[in-house]
Nucleic acid binder design. Structure first.
Length: 295
DNA sequence: ACTGGATCCTGCCTGC
DNA sequence: TGCAGGCAGGATCCAG
């Protein structure tokens, strides 16, 4: 799925398309995604103006002019396609390529805007979901309350990592995948950050903390690596694997800079390292790492 | 309190 | 060529 850099790329595109625009028509084509759509979903959105498009972890938040917030999680395969309202499938309209490769059977929600754009939510696996909540209630919402630090905000540093990790016996991989610790990482960027930090995904999370839960060299390296890899990935427009696309139809570029993810059997890219990238399964998910330079 | 496993769903790729 | 099985960027629930 879209991890933080992909969600941030989507956020930027939706902000360009939707901020300040009214939703003139909302077509909801099935009763549920991962969860049922909120009650009277389409009619509560129709006629509303989108004030801003934000992001928390992997959640998009569209703030509306009536104090409500449309929350969207993309799950594994959710994506938005932004097109001129008159575009047919396969058409190219200005800068927008409207879905050249795929049948429309997984277009679950279609928004039309006062600016003449059509914004389509497509999600084959339907692990994504949409919620409608009052803005004032959002921080207390179960989905947001327990989320950990935002890695590109000011909250992620070695001290925070060490405090969260102290005493934890879980693998570092599982620790970083847990959104309560660092919010927004997923399988790709956990693997890439651990590579850059020179840390094995199988190391115990508790070893990020020194005496009395203080930061140590490992938590320093990891905090820096996480921020660095996410920053670069956002600048590159995220990673395009399989069918993820930016909302304008173009691909991200960061997949070409993966050092370990999906590179099993290939040589380690660290200068002078003679190792080979290995694939192991942890908590049911593949991990990619170099056992020679990640300890 | 933590931890690992099963689970939701569809599409695509691999191997027989 | 066809088909079964495995695998996929997430997150929650549950048992131990």
């Amino acid at each position: 799925m879209p991890e933080l850099p992909e969600v941030e790329t989507v956020r930027r595109a939706l902000e360009r398309a939707l901020a300040g625009q009214m939703l003139t028509h909302v077509d909801v084509r099935r009763a549920d995604l991962r969860f049922p759509f909120p009650d009277k979903f389409a009619s509560r959105l129709t006629g509303r103006t989108v004030v801003s498009v934000g992001r928390r972890a992997k959640y998009l938040r569209l703030d509306l002019d009536n104090g409500e917030v449309l929350i969207v999680h993309l799950g594994m395969t959710g994506r938005f396609i932004v097109a001129n309202g008159g575009a047919e499938r396969g058409a190219v309209v200005g800068d927008y390529v409207y879905d050249t490769g795929r049948l429309p059977q997984h277009d679950h929600v279609v928004f039309e805007t006062s600016g003449g754009l059509r914004v389509t939510y497509n999600d084959p696996r339907r692990f994504g979901y949409m919620l409608l909540e009052k803005a004032a209630d959002l921080d207390a919402h179960a989905l947001f309350r327990a989320l950990g630090v935002e890695p590109l905000g000011n909250g992620l540093d070695a001290v925070t990592l060490a405090q969260r990790a102290v005493g934890r016996r879980a693998d570092l991989k599982a620790f970083l995948m847990d959104q309560r610790n660092v919010a927004g990482l997923g399988n790709i960027y956990v693997c890439e950050a651990l590579f850059r930090a020179g840390l094995s995904p199988r190391r115990r999370a508790g070893t990020l903390a020194g005496h009395a839960g203080k930061a140590n060299a490992r938590s320093e390296r990891l905090a820096r690596a996480i921020r660095e890899v996410l920053t670069e990935a956002v600048e590159a427009g995220g990673s395009t694997l399989r069918d993820y696309r930016q909302p304008d139809g173009t691909s991200g570029a960061f997949q070409d800079r993966h050092d370990v993810y999906d590179r099993a059997g290939e040589p380690c890219r660290r200068a002078a390292c003679t190792g080979t990238v290995r694939r192991v399964v942890q908590a049911g998910r593949p991990s990619f790492f170099c056992a020679v330079c990640q300890k």
